[in-house]
Structure formats: structure tokens, C-alpha cells
Design a protein around this nucleic acid. Sequence first.
DNA 1: TAGTTAATTGAGCGATTGTTCAATAATTTA
DNA 2: TAAATTATTGAACAATCGCTCAATTAACTA
Lengths: 195, 195
Amino acid sequence: MANVAKYNREDVIRKAMLLFWEKGFNGASTRDLQQAIDMRPGSIYAAFGSKEKIYSEALECYSKEMSNILNKHIAEQGSPLTGLEAFFRNVVIDRRDSNPSEVCMLVKTLSEVNEQHPDLLELARDLLKRAENRFAEILQQARAQGEILPASDTGILAKHLQVQMIGLRIYMKTSGNSQAVSELISSVFRAISIK
Amino acid sequence: MANVAKYNREDVIRKAMLLFWEKGFNGASTRDLQQAIDMRPGSIYAAFGSKEKIYSEALECYSKEMSNILNKHIAEQGSPLTGLEAFFRNVVIDRRDSNPSEVCMLVKTLSEVNEQHPDLLELARDLLKRAENRFAEILQQARAQGEILPASDTGILAKHLQVQMIGLRIYMKTSGNSQAVSELISSVFRAISIK
DNA sequence: TAGTTAATTGAGCGATTGTTCAATAATTTA
DNA sequence: TAAATTATTGAACAATCGCTCAATTAACTA
């Protein structure tokens, strides 16, 4: 049967994602949500079931969007490692004003949400783990292309990059010092790559 | 005039800190707070003025406690750099079960609080900046004692350590992999120190 | 077009939020 | 000890929370 709903589910989830990313799970009320996605409570709960369910779909939307941005940069740069560095610079520095929050939405979720919503915690953890795995894939390609040392442990390096991405975004929000952050990113990738 | 209040302000602030650290600013209700510090709303508001004010005192209590832990480890190890590494390991790994949250309370504040509470944002930023300055001090001592290269830029290294501390704590919460995190900490300090 | 089904509406539920304040208790001053 | 001052209490307020559901509108079928 065809989808006869007036609303476009993808659009709605994305708008919900932008709201939740900005205000957090507790900080965004269902009234805020109603306004952001232009739907009435009855429709929202018929379509999604609960605030928690919408939030979890928003989390997945966020991850997919970040993944797309990463892939775009790798394709544009034509190199795994250079693409990864461009992605770091883009996310941590360039998009800091246009994004709803400077902090990674998955990290915000891990910070804010407690055991009252175990599914959200588990999902955030899973999506972060998938991001780490994607980093590892890219590093393997970089190794195969001779961009990093043949003996590099891509699993450990991926964890290392995950730590940097998370820490740098928070540090960017703390300090507002984009030049210092840019230099920190340079040194991270200088330490990894073959000169 | 002597303090005739029944409650002990330091104890109360510390209990409030533990509650807020666990549940966050929005997640901890004033009813939760009343129970945690065993005071009635009238007394609380007479003593502190608002939820935001108690939270800001709790933030300062948190920072002071972390600072004490750091100083203790440096004194015990008898070396700035070794003390710093012991502090990292202690905070990120050892205390992860006994602490109310694995995530730094200042980071939780930066993540959760928005422009409705600008004083809290500013305070969290300021306290993080002070922690970075303390790292820089310690690194200068380490340089003076020949533990790191004479040419090391302690300002940049302090920013680097700040990024690691923040990222590692989140990564610890994400993965639960304390062995991997321990190795990451080792490599961070191996990269800094003179062999 | 008439009848059936599906989607949407929004008033409003009970619970909870941060906060106030008149009443009470405890302490200090005289 | 009596009076004055300070501290504490907890019921209750207005606002807001996540969410429900009977009523209404829109869409599809025959």
C-alpha cells in the first residue's frame, strides 16, 4: 500500500534530529518538537510511539549524515587519509557555526541519557562503534596505499582517531580557538602519516 | 557572626555535586536535590537562590576535587609527568565505577546547558581553561626536570592533553574497554616523554 | 458518488517542574 | 526570661511535562 501520509517521514526525522541535537533529549520538549516538525501530538504519537523512539530515529539520521559527509570528503580528496583529515577539519572547525551544536550528538546522548532509557544508550554506543569501524576501514585503505606505515595497527589508530574527534570537538566548544584546533588536527595526522 | 545554620554548606554542596554529576542539570529535579542534601525547598532557596546557583557551586566543588586528586598523584609519584599519567589512569579507568558518571562534569555541562544559562556555560569554560593552565604548569616542571624535550611547547601539549582527557573518558564510557584505553594512555605519554 | 478506512486534530489528562511564602521553630539579644 | 531575630518547614502555585483520545477531516474503494 502506498504511503498516504501528508508528512514526509525523512524530512520530519531530520528536523527532529536538528532540534534534539541542539537542545538534547531532556532539553527539547514535545511542544518544541511539535513546532519543529509541524505535526500535532496525535499524529506524532501515531507515527512514532514515544519521544524516545523519535529520538532514536533522529540519532540514526545524525549518524547517516555524518557518514555521508565523511564519504564525500574521501571522494573529493581522492585519498583515504587526506579525506579523513579534511573531514576532521570540516566537522570540528568549518561547520561549528552552521551545526545545531558543536558537540557530537552521540556524545551528547551518552552524556545526558541515563539508565531510564537504556535503548538510547545502547544505540549511541553502537553508532559510535560503527564510526570507529569505519575509521579502521579507511586506515586499512590508507595502509594499502602506503599513506601510513605497513606495521600500523589500524584498530588502535581508529580508537585513537575516535578519541581525537570527540575531544577536539569539545575543546573547540571550550576554547573557540580555531587556529589552535587546526594545529592540533595537523599534528594528529602528521603523527600518523608517512612523511 | 558565626554560622548558625544547621546544615554544613560544604557537605551540602558536595552532595549536590554528586547528584548533578550523575543526572545533569535538567535531569536532576529540585525534588531529587531536596532528598540528596536533606533540605526543604524554603531553606535551599534561602541559602542558594536558585537551582542554577547551586549547580554553579557544585561545578566549582567538582573542579576543586579533581584538582586535589591531580596534586595528590603528582606528590605520590614524585614526578610531574609520571604523576600526570597516574592521574589520567586513575580518573579515566580506576574511578569509573565509583564516580557518579564516567563523563567529566564540565563536559556534561557544556553538552547539556544552553544559552538560557550563560553563567553556567561561562563557568564550565573557565574551569576547563584553568585545568588546561594547570596541565601547562606541570609540563613546564616536567621540562625543567628533563622529562620532556627542552623544545616542547607546553601550551600546545597542555591543549593536547586536555583533548585526550576529554576524549578518553567518553571513549571509556562508549567501549568499556579498559585495556585498550590503558594502552591509549600509555601511547599518549610515550609520545610526550623522553625515552 | 456513497461508504469505508486511514490520518489528523487539539483540548485536556495526570504528573512533575522550579519556586514562593505564611506559619513555625530555633537561636540570639537584651 | 522576654523580646527580637533568624532559620526552617512544607503546602501550594503557576507553568510545563509527555502523552491520550473522541471528534473531525481527508483519502481510498467499490
